[in-house]
Amino acid sequence: MADTHNESLLACVDVSGSADGMPQLCADWFGNQVFWLILTLVAIFFILSRIALPRIASVLAERQGTITNDISAADELKRRAADAEAAYEKALADARTEAQAIAQKTRDEIATELAAATAKADEDIAAKTAESEKAISEIRASALENVEVVAKDTASAIVTALGGTVDDAAIAAAVSNQVKG
């Protein structure tokens, strides 16, 4: 096949424009391909080693750094949250003791006031009682006096009505004798 259609002016191509033999084995084309291949590889190598790979490596490092920073920031926040919680618990306990102290103090004050008020009230009541008793005894005394007067009047009236003569002194002595008796 390789030497059947070699009248073509171009290497490795027969007159009809088809490949003459395997194009892979056409030595006339090697130089061109190798030249452009080396150019291509050098271009790709410089694109990668000068621009792309450093950039991607820095992006990846930056991302790793960001992740590390975020994790440490999260740890810091967590630590602060724990601190805040401890402070809150402490404040709560303090507040509770203080509240208990205030309640105790208030209770004591109220008890003292109550005792004072009770004492005062007792005193007042005693005073009032004494006063009332005095008033009662006065009333009783006056009532007795009135009874004597009424009895004398009544006795003299009775004596008069019975036709006797009224002897005031005797009546008074008899009445008071009777009342006292």
């Binding site: 002016l9 006339d28 061109n32 391909q33």
Partner: peptide, 11 residues
């Protein structure tokens, strides 16, 4: 023809 520096379809 294809020379050494010809801009071919390979290039």
């Amino acid at each position: 023809p294809v020379g050494l520096f010809t801009f071919t379809n390979a290039a």
